[in-house]
Amino acid sequence: MESMNHGIGVDIAFLLLATLAVVTAWRVFRTDSMVRASFFLLVSFIAVGVIMILLAAEYLGVAMFFMMAVEMTVMALFMVMFMMNPAGLNPMNMVHQERISIGAGVVSFLVLSAMALLAVFPDRPVSAGLDPVRSLGNEMLGDSMLIFESAGLVLLTTMIGVVVLSSHRGRYGAATEGSLPPGLEPGGDPAGKPEDDEDGGHHHHHH
């Protein structure tokens, strides 16, 4: 872009960061350790954050660093708590429908990159006088305040929902107390539960 007016250094940095982002994103699904996978994902996000800073969206890039650092740390903790093999001591390849997945990934990449290369997008780069952080702040607390506040409200709702979902017991006993799934036919046996008790012994999930 002639009017973006950046040097060769930015291009080299972008090339390195783009390679880093794609390679680490790929390694997420190719490493044996789930903890390492979450840190690979973190590196991919940080590379994208630096690219955002190169694009003059400083606030978004830095917000990305902070948010993803915390998020991936939480993710690594969850790996250690819940998952088998978090340290990668054994080889791990836990995938299903892999051919379809590879096909879907490749097809979506090809379609999206064909759009990126063939479509004609307007060439209207950021003007040199614009202060991106100031304009974002004015937008969030100005014209788009309702959208911004709605996002906050949705986050609050999420917090309440998360507590309800993950709490061990409700005020009047266990969270699942007395709750039975409805029958498959009217008056029939509850779906799911009794079946689970019968074949729990030789099923592949462990109790």
Binding site: I51, M94, I102, F109
Partner: peptide
């Protein structure tokens, strides 16, 4: 956009293929 497409493609592969 090519980089974004690559990330989205890898993400779609992961979301469809992973068991955990």
């Amino acid at each position: 956009l090519l980089l974004a497409a690559a990330l989205i493609g890898i993400g779609i592969y992961g979301a469809l293929s992973q068991q955990s």
